[in-house]
Amino acid sequence: MAAQSFPDPVFEGLLDKLVKAIETAQSPESTLNQGARQALFQATSEFKDGLAKAKQLANTLPGGELLIEEQEEVIAMLAKLRDTKREQLAYFSKQSLTTSLKQVEASIKLEIDSTASSPQE
């Protein structure tokens, strides 16, 4: 699955929409006639819609909750945890083998001792 590219035009368009809304609001005739009011409403609505779309896109970006530094910290922590688990596994595998060998040796010694002490016919 290919990663989606970051939708730059949506975010870049926000600045243009904001500028248009501010210019329309600051024009001298913005409150004088119905056409200017309608233009102001249209400009602010476009900015509001663009902002909502940008927010939706930002919220759906994969892995966007962590900063790069935070992601690197998590990766380092997971690598350390992995290494620790590997060391524990190696330790336990040695212990199992050693314990199993000791049990086999004890069993062989017990067999030898019981054979030696058994009366022969």
Score class of each variant (00 low, 15 high):
residue 73 E to A: 15
residue 74 V to P: 04
residue 30 S to W: 09
residue 56 Q to V: 15
residue 112 I to Y: 01
residue 58 A to Q: 15
residue 93 S to R: 07
residue 82 R to F: 04
residue 120 Q to E: 04
residue 5 S to L: 08
residue 4 Q to Y: 03
residue 7 P to C: 00
residue 35 G to H: 10
residue 98 T to P: 00
residue 18 L to T: 11
residue 13 G to Y: 13
residue 108 I to M: 02
residue 78 L to H: 01
residue 30 S to D: 01
residue 93 S to T: 12
residue 60 T to D: 11
residue 69 E to R: 10
residue 109 K to R: 14
residue 111 E to L: 11
residue 15 L to M: 03
residue 102 K to H: 10
residue 39 A to Y: 02
residue 42 Q to C: 02
residue 114 S to L: 14
residue 47 F to Q: 04
residue 49 D to Y: 05
residue 73 E to L: 11
residue 103 Q to K: 14
residue 56 Q to H: 15
residue 54 A to P: 03
residue 63 G to S: 08
residue 85 K to W: 03
residue 37 R to M: 13
residue 65 E to H: 05
residue 18 L to N: 10
residue 110 L to N: 06
residue 71 Q to C: 11
residue 48 K to M: 07
residue 17 K to A: 15
residue 4 Q to K: 06
residue 120 Q to L: 09
residue 11 F to P: 12
residue 51 L to Y: 15
residue 49 D to K: 07
residue 5 S to I: 02
residue 92 F to V: 07
residue 75 I to C: 04
residue 43 A to I: 02
residue 31 T to Q: 09
residue 104 V to Q: 14
residue 113 D to K: 08
residue 18 L to M: 09
residue 89 L to C: 01
residue 114 S to F: 06
residue 41 F to D: 00
residue 76 A to T: 12
residue 67 L to A: 11
residue 4 Q to W: 01
residue 5 S to E: 07
